[in-house]
Amino acid sequence: MSLAIVDYSEYWWIQIIKAIVIFALGLQLVPLVLLFERKLLGRFQGRYGPNRVGLYGLIQPLADIVKLLGKEQSRPNTSVGALYILAPTISIVTAVATFAIIPFGDAPHIFGTRVGLYGVDLSIGPLYIFALSAIAFYGLMLGGWASGSKYSFLGAMRAAAQLISYEVSQGLALVGVLITAGTLSLTGIVEGQGSIWYIVPQFAGFLIFLVAAFAETNRAPFDLVEADAELVGGYNTEYGGGRFASYYFAEYLNVLVVSGVAVTIFLGGWLIPFWSHQPAWVDPFVVLAKMSIFVIFFVWIRATLPRLRYDQLMSFGWKVLLPLATLNTLVTAIIVVAVHK
């Protein structure tokens, strides 16, 4: 894919190193988020959370991963072998690929050459995210179908319906920002927020995006996909061991990706208000700090709100969120045209 801004080029070895660093970063962040969530949930529910493995339970995720990878890989007799194995791989590949375009900073000089602190800066930014989330659907759908179990199948069907319904609103919520910024490049969008973050003029779009993001990542209160009271565990009911771990990994990486996208598009990415000349090494930490705010918010909502009913989910998506998102796009377009005249 070609770069959006072609005023500098990177050596091939820099791109390989970046690919490894991004994957390693994602891999390290997910256990942290996992622990963070369990600890916070414990506090919300008036208990301690994991506190036995390591100091304050700090290496609990490590123990979980070792346990999951050490388990026997079993699968039901009714399952379809090839697809059953392929499905979690699709989920994890799309999650990591989306993580690659989140910008953690500008393109500073490192070792005498310019290195963009992101995997690749695409000219189609958000469209790439939606294309990959469209493919991620097949990870859930094939997993549920290939398991050969009705609980998995029902979970996968819910996932399909939910993803289709909320993807539209999520996309439309971003259109307002894209119209304002006049670019699809994610670094371009961040640079466009120098004077004011887009969360202020696009607050309605931000709220719509946030609600749709909960649905897209299958998080509470939109976690009907894995509603354990009625579906046992949803699309991943029949999965165990390493394959279950891949689904779990993809889910939490998706939470991080959505936080990263929200930070980039609405919260000014690596920008700090009233401090325009920060050193370049601060940028990634600013982005990570802002992302962690979103992660806390995700956990907070999970601990607070009960799960929606299925018809409520659907009618909310189509009858409230979609008209609001359309209205937001229309109003933004009219204002932008009026101001530019």
Partner: peptide, 16 residues
């Protein structure tokens, strides 16, 4: 070099 068409292809056809 048709990134937009490629993304639209995946979003509309493969995705919807």
């Amino acid at each position: 070099r048709a990134e937009f068409i490629a993304a639209a292809q995946v979003v509309v056809y493969a995705g919807a």
